[in-house]
Design a protein around this nucleic acid. Structure first.
Lengths: 216, 216
DNA sequence: ATAAATTTTTAGTCTAGTCTAAATATTAAT
DNA sequence: ATTAATATTTAGACTAGACTAAAAATTTAT
């Protein structure tokens, strides 16, 4: 499998983890290529049995395609853990490098890395790491925006892994494990007042929609 | 720089670490491609300032090209150390994977890895690891074949890193650091009798030519 | 010093993966 | 139920990096 094919499968997976159908256009947009290019590749992936494809009807991963995709995601997230835990990268620096490392082909490497890292269940952004069979145990996490008033919760992940968001969180001392208490929610702009590190803080809906928490 | 360009520079470097000129044909043979292909790429590398090239006169790395080449070699050897020291690979299993890892682009990654591994000076086969400026400190190692009778020496590297040779060494319990005493040399076939782990062993010239040692 | 052998280069072809522009389907709006 | 807007596919072109076959230069051998 080529690097390009791997990237297509990964993108299809991310656009539809629930395995619904993905449109040519959505895929092209995600990958920053033209729709004609994604059509071409979809045809090829279909011939190789990685996706189901009906003209004009979008594309869905087959079992084989999904396993290939989760294998890439598994590697990506394991490498992110390695970079942060072992090499001292910060959580906003790992993505680019992991995009390269995820394509290294060696199941021994992946499995030994997993063991070396003590079988982590999530990457530095809280995203779950698939096992080698492609199974993903995703906890019942929810976005902070949906949490009801007065609830106590713990930050367990982010929905947006961009540098910009992660650096914002660093500035406000929010990281995985940080306790958050919801005090209030404004009707007007959906902003929230929360208690973080014993300080009252106002949080916009952009932020609360991108923070995963677990109620405690 | 593309992966292919990186591989050309690496091959040129390995064919002439002393920076003598490398022929189109030698390069093609080393890379298992046709001579016409290497001519093409040589032209491109020349335009980009990575090599000096005169038609029919072979090719030589420029300063820039040599730095690029040693950077790849540095990464290759650091990753080999990682695989053996941290992930439990054996020295005959690391090459293929390192061939992939050497192309990962991130100087932060390389330097942090170097630090994480405690600034190793050689890879698992005893080959020196260039520093980030491309400098290589190669000890005055010599092949066992050239050592004089009665000398005591220590195995510090191999000249042939193929699985076959490395597994042969494993079988005879020869590894880096193993003490070898030369007892005798046969005129007929250039084989040697040596003392390894307090056992007399006969060693063919194929083997003694591929073992690097240091006299003690 | 010429002929023969070898090496290197050139010219033209192929595949993967992208693109643009045009044609065709599908979906949404009146 | 047509038309308009949008999405998708097709057709044809481009680049990187490989190839084969043939031409040209260099080296080796007589």
């Amino acid at each position: 499998m080529t690097r390009s094919e791997e990237n297509y499968l990964k993108s299809i997976f991310h656009l539809a983890e629930d395995n619904t159908s993905v449109s040519t256009n959505a895929l092209a947009k995600k990958m920053k290529i033209k729709a004609s290019s994604s059509t071409e590749m979809i045809k090829k992936l279909s011939e190789k049995g990685h996706v189901y494809y009906k003209k004009y009807k979008g594309v869905k991963l087959t079992k084989k395609g999904r396993l290939a995709a989760t294998s890439i995601v598994r590697k990506h997230r394991l490498w992110e853990v390695f970079l942060v835990d072992k090499l001292g990268f910060s959580w906003d620096e790992v993505h680019e490098v992991a995009e390269q490392l995820e394509h290294i082909k060696s199941s021994k490497l992946t499995d030994e890395l997993d063991s070396f890292l003590n079988y982590p269940k999530a990457d530095p952004h809280g995203d779950p790491i698939p096992d080698s069979n492609g199974n993903i145990i995703d906890s019942k996490r929810q976005v902070l925006a949906n949490v009801s008033i007065h609830a106590n919760c713990i930050c367990i992940g982010v929905n947006d892994s961009s540098k910009f968001f992660l650096k914002y969180l660093d500035k406000f001392k929010i990281k995985l494990g940080t306790k958050i208490t919801v005090l209030n929610r404004e009707f007007y702009d959906s902003s929230m007042t929360v208690l973080i590190n014993n300080k009252k803080t106002s949080i916009s809906k952009e932020v609360s929609n991108n923070l995963y928490v677990e109620i405690i």
